[in-house]
Amino acid sequence: MAEPARLPRLRRARGRDPLGLRRVMADRLLPLLVAAMALLAALALAGAEGAAALAARWQQGAASAVTLQLPAGTPPAGVEAALAALRDLPEVAEARLLDRARLAALLNPWLGEAAPEVPLPVVIEIALHGLPAAPETLAARLEAAAPGATVEAHGVWVARLVALARSLQAVGFATLALVAALAAAVVAVAVRAGIAARRDAIAVLHELGATDGDIAHRFAARAGWLTGLGALLGTAAALPVLALLADLAAPLLGGDSGGWRGDGVARLRAGLAALPWAALVALPALGAALGWTSAQVTVRLWLRRLP
């Protein structure tokens, strides 16, 4: 007696898939390939986001690439002479005296309200034309130009780190684009194989008055579902790795790592909290959209050969 109840459901399922795409675009290979690519994409995405965060945080440090300190009590004429000498150096874009108010403000946390009475050093901020190849030689040249000065060139290193982080970010996004292109190509190949396997059925549907949109929609729905599923699996698989990386990076970003005080679970939890969730959640949706679009384009281009 189970037969009559089961048959209509079976029939409806089959009827909705007149091209038999469930068979020719099976749910194994394509989602697995896409899952592997989504894993790479998630790593690249998190890498790019992390690099961007690092760069943004370090940017401030890099803004004043080099500072130069003259001993407290240097007479104004001496300061002017040092500024002039520094401005004459080819790599110096700008040399500017840090005014006492700002200096006091900067030192306030350490010196408190007593600041005005303490003799303050004279600080010159120097902006450079570019990042010097050898900060040490530059420091020596600056010290020679302003006798008695001490040069603080940490900013040069920070600027290099920022440049590195920006490059990593660019590499991350380029990887993301490459993976997306690859996924689109894989979907196109799978769809073409599906078309080849169902050529006759497609011709029948076409002759019965199905529009290109009808036929493309059937492939696109299937491809979108399979790539969305694959992207979801791949992203989920990437999460633990990303969480641990995020936990390692946390101190660099001014956050808290679970690792220095907690166990593995705490680290994982701290890392998970730090992940770029919006981007990661968007990944499966983007995967589905990519699969859908790639299938639409592939099928519609192919159908143009029919009258």
Partner: peptide, 19 residues
């Protein structure tokens, strides 16, 4: 030119579903 993986019912229903 019937679709081999569809039942007689689904083959006959095809034009209506397309419409």
């Amino acid at each position: 030119r019937l679709l081999a993986h569809l039942s007689a019912f689904d083959n006959v229903a095809l034009p209506l579903r397309i419409a």
